[in-house]
Simulated scan of single mutants.
Amino acid sequence: MYAIRPARPDDLAAVVELVVRLQADPDHHVGYHGTSAAEIAEELAGLRPDWASGAVLAVAEDGTPRGVISVDADAEVGRAWLFGPFVELPADHPAFRQCWHNVADELLEAAMAVPRLSGITDLELFGHRRNRRLGDFAARHGFTQRATSRVFTLTGSALRPVLVAAVDDADTARPLGADPQVRAQVIELHERCFPNTTVTGRQLVEGARGHTIVVATGATGLLGFAAGYAQPDELYVDYVAVDPEMRGAGTGRALIRALLRELAAKEGPRPQAAAVISLGNDASERMFTALGFGLHLELVGYRREP
Rank of each mutant, 00 (worst) to 15 (best):
M1R: 15
A3N: 09
A3C: 06
I4R: 13
P9V: 00
D10I: 02
D11A: 01
V19P: 02
V20Y: 10
L22F: 04
A24Y: 10
P26S: 08
P26N: 05
G31D: 02
G34K: 06
A37K: 02
E43A: 06
G46Y: 03
D50P: 03
T64Q: 10
G67A: 06
V71L: 06
A75S: 14
E76F: 12
G84Q: 05
E88Q: 14
E88W: 03
L89I: 04
D92Y: 11
H93D: 15
N102A: 15
V103Q: 12
V103R: 13
A104M: 07
E106C: 12
L107W: 14
E109G: 11
A113Q: 13
A113W: 05
P115W: 11
P115I: 01
R116I: 04
L123P: 01
G127L: 07
H128F: 12
H128G: 04
R132Y: 14
F137Q: 06
F143I: 05
R146L: 11
R146Y: 07
A147V: 13
S149I: 06
S157H: 14
A158H: 13
R160I: 06
R160Q: 15
A170F: 12
A178S: 07
P180H: 08
Q181G: 04
Q185T: 04
Q185F: 00
V186N: 02
H190R: 02
R192D: 15
N196S: 10
T197E: 15
Q203E: 14
E206A: 09
E206I: 03
E206W: 11
H211D: 05
A216S: 15
T217Q: 11
A219C: 00
L223D: 12
A230K: 00
Q231P: 00
Y239V: 01
A241P: 11
E245F: 09
A264K: 04
P269K: 09
A273C: 06
A273F: 10
V276H: 13
S278D: 15
S278H: 12
G280D: 03
M287L: 15
F288V: 07
F288M: 08
T289C: 04
A290C: 04
L291K: 09
L291E: 07
G294P: 01
R303K: 09
E305T: 13
E305C: 08
